[in-house]
Simulated scan of single mutants.
Amino acid sequence: RLYPQPRIDDSPTTIIGFNHVGINVLDLDKMLAFYQKATGYELLERTVVANDEAADELFGQKGISYESAILKGPNMLLELREFANQQDTLLKKMPPQGPGITHTCYQSAMTASGFARFKEAGAEILTRGGAPVDLGGYGVTYAYAYDPEGNMLELEQMSERLIRLQIGTEWARQHPLWMTQVAIISPDLQRLVAFYQRVLGIKPYRMGSYAHNPGFDKIANLDSLAFDAAWFGMDGQGKKLELMQYVHPPTPPNPPPRALTAPGYTFSFEVLDIQQEYERLKKLGVRFVSTPQVLGPFRTVFAYDVDGNVFALRQALQDTSIYSLQNF
């Protein structure tokens, strides 16, 4: 396979990749039905957490109560959480220009279109014309869409040739829809890149400025779109951390850091030694919500990046855990 270099395998840290993309939701039943229909991912568990001291410590709030559902994709987990303290929250759609964690991405073969699956499940298509856009004839089509609660997602359809080179034909045949990225939009791209370079211990494998392409305008439904971007190579098929700053329309300033229970995206890096990574990142000035806590199948700790976005570190309690990247 043709993997980007460097990638997380080259890091001197114990980070091994993205473990999960999470979405804090208001209606777990509705959102779980949507994502199960769109992805076909296996439901590993559905759990209620309440009256749990470790959960209170982990989230930095007393009386934390939530229900979660964990879906297993072919290369990472998709987790949905409904918190009891967010039921009066008003939902709004995430604009493409951010700021914040704006979307994750689902890739598929053109012959087994993920776009078609999400559209059939009821996704609201943002991309102009209601169909994926071919940016340059290099074997990928792109579209943006919204789930039922206004969380944006990207849908990429790949040619057989590109799948053979980057993903693996047999793997893609066995896993027709896979997750690839966490996308964070920032008003200060250079600062955010520097932060994640320190966290991950590797440099971006690609950086660039992009403009004057009508295809971009169609995908994001924005006129004269221009942006700067950087990508960090993660683990497995197609996985990357995508950092962007919109130049036109400009990415707005960051709001105050949102509550850990607020609706929207979160994500985690899986690590082999969470205490080591916690101590390393604390020395680098990373702000944590708590010390690592045991909750469910992981030791977990939440942190904020320099823009106030929430991410987590996770270490599986057992090497044989079905929730660990080591056993996907």
Rank of each mutant, 00 (worst) to 15 (best):
G296H: 07
H248S: 13
F298I: 07
Q276S: 14
M244C: 05
R280W: 06
L284T: 11
P297F: 01
M244Q: 05
P263E: 06
L260I: 15
A259E: 11
P257I: 09
T266L: 10
T251D: 08
F311S: 04
H248V: 15
H248T: 09
E277W: 00
S290L: 07
A303M: 08
L243D: 04
F298T: 00
I274T: 05
Q245D: 00
L243I: 12
Y265T: 05
G285I: 06
A259G: 13
V286T: 09
V310A: 12
K282T: 12
R258V: 15
T266G: 06
D305I: 01
L313W: 00
Y304V: 04
N309E: 14
Q275H: 15
L243C: 01
E242Q: 14
P253H: 15
V247W: 05
L313A: 03
E242Y: 02
V301W: 09
F311I: 11
L260F: 12
Y265D: 11
P297I: 01
L260A: 15
F311E: 03
G296T: 08
Y246I: 02
E270I: 03
V310L: 12
L281N: 12
V294T: 15
P297K: 01
S268I: 04
E279D: 14
E242F: 05
L241Q: 06
G285D: 09
Q293E: 13
I274W: 03
Y278Q: 03
V310Q: 12
L241I: 07
P253C: 05
Y304W: 11
V289L: 11
P297H: 10
L272C: 11
V286N: 00
D307G: 12
P255A: 09
T300K: 00
V289A: 03
P255H: 04
P257G: 11
G285F: 00
P250W: 00
K283T: 13
P249G: 07
V271K: 00
Q276T: 14
Y265W: 13
P255F: 06
E277V: 09
V271D: 10
G308D: 10
T251S: 05
K283R: 14
D273N: 09
P250C: 08
Q293N: 02
F302Q: 08
Y246G: 06
F302D: 06
V271Y: 00
L260E: 14
N309Q: 14
N309I: 01
G296V: 07
A303D: 08
G308W: 01
V247C: 11
P250M: 04
L295A: 08
V306Q: 08
F288L: 00
K283W: 11
T300V: 13
F302A: 06
F311W: 08
V301Y: 02
V301N: 02
P257D: 03
T261D: 10
Y304S: 03
R280S: 13
L295Y: 02
T266Y: 12
F267I: 04
V294R: 14
Y246V: 07
R287C: 08
N309R: 00
L313Q: 05
E270K: 00
D305N: 03
Q245E: 10
N254M: 15
T291I: 13
V301H: 01
L281V: 10
P249F: 08
N309F: 11
F267Y: 14
G285M: 09
R299T: 06
K283S: 14
Q245M: 11
R258S: 14
P250L: 10
P249E: 05
Y246N: 03
L260S: 13
P250H: 06
Y246C: 02
F288D: 04
A312F: 08
